[in-house]
Computed example of a mutant assay.
Amino acid sequence: MRISTDDFKQVADIVKATPQLRRARLYTPETAQDYYTNDGPSPPFAMQLDFDTLAALEATIAVDGYLQALARLQFPSLTGCVITQQVMARRPFPVDDPIISVAKGNVPCSFLVHYPGHAEDFDAWINYYLTHHPQIMRLFDGIREIEIFTRVDWLDAMPWQRVHYMQRNKQVFDSAAAITAAMNSPVRHQMREDFEKFPPFVGSNVHFPMATHTFTFT
């Protein structure tokens, strides 16, 4: 299952006109293989909308906010889907070569990960994660971007299910094949070794490769 071309265009047209939006990432399903995990098919569609401030974002998802236009539309290709939403703080981390290299007409691929559970001591967990795990991600051959997302409280009036995952992360590569190569490399085993050192938490994690369509605004 995936979003149709027509439905994708409707979403993109609305998103691109969003007030104070700095960057939009629209994600469509891809396929890649990870040595340690197989979490099934990727979602049919996902969005990442980046704002400078929480207030700017909340204005667009208020009862009279601009993004209510999305909620009013019907998307036939997504009929029956459960739509979830979460506002998070975006934390970029450095990579050695951020230049995307894809053939004309192609887009890069992101490995989206979320941790839906909870930690016994969240402060200890997130402090360990942020000071250890992205530093190993940086060692992946061909990694173009690393972002870690942490929880915030927010106000909204969107008619979608709110979720409160304790953390998410995103790694961007040139292609799904590059993700597969990275996730079957020695660095992936280093990641797993570090995973085993995390402070105790419940809920494991979930991984999805997604083709990544980017729109930036000034």
Rank of each mutant, 00 (worst) to 15 (best):
D34Q: 03
M158P: 05
E193A: 15
I83Y: 13
V163N: 09
A181V: 07
D97Q: 14
Q161E: 15
H164L: 01
M1S: 13
S175V: 04
L49K: 00
S204Q: 10
H189R: 13
P209V: 00
C81L: 07
H213C: 01
I100A: 08
H189W: 08
N106L: 11
H133V: 01
F122R: 05
F201Q: 06
K9Y: 06
A178L: 02
P98W: 08
P44L: 10
R168I: 02
S77G: 05
P76Y: 02
F208E: 10
T150C: 02
E30I: 02
H213T: 07
E120K: 07
I146Y: 05
F201T: 11
F198W: 09
A182Y: 07
Q48D: 08
S77A: 04
A181S: 12
F122H: 14
L21Q: 01
V202Y: 13
V95R: 11
E147R: 15
I179L: 13
H132N: 15
D39E: 07
A103G: 10
N205T: 10
F198S: 11
Q20H: 12
F149V: 00
F173Q: 06
L26C: 05
D64I: 00
V63T: 12
G65K: 03
M166A: 04
V95T: 11
F173D: 11
Y128G: 01
V152S: 01
H164R: 05
N106H: 14
R151H: 07
P41M: 13
C109P: 03
L155T: 00
A119L: 07
Y129W: 15
E30M: 07
F45L: 13
E196L: 14
V82E: 14
M210W: 03
R138H: 13
M137W: 12
T79P: 01
I83N: 11
D121G: 06
T60D: 04
D97K: 12
D13A: 10
N169R: 10
A69Q: 15
Q171I: 05
F51H: 02
R162T: 00
F111R: 08
P41A: 14
K104C: 00
G40T: 08
A62M: 03
T60S: 08
G203C: 10
N127T: 15
P199Y: 09
P159R: 06
S77T: 02
G80A: 11
T5W: 01
L139N: 12
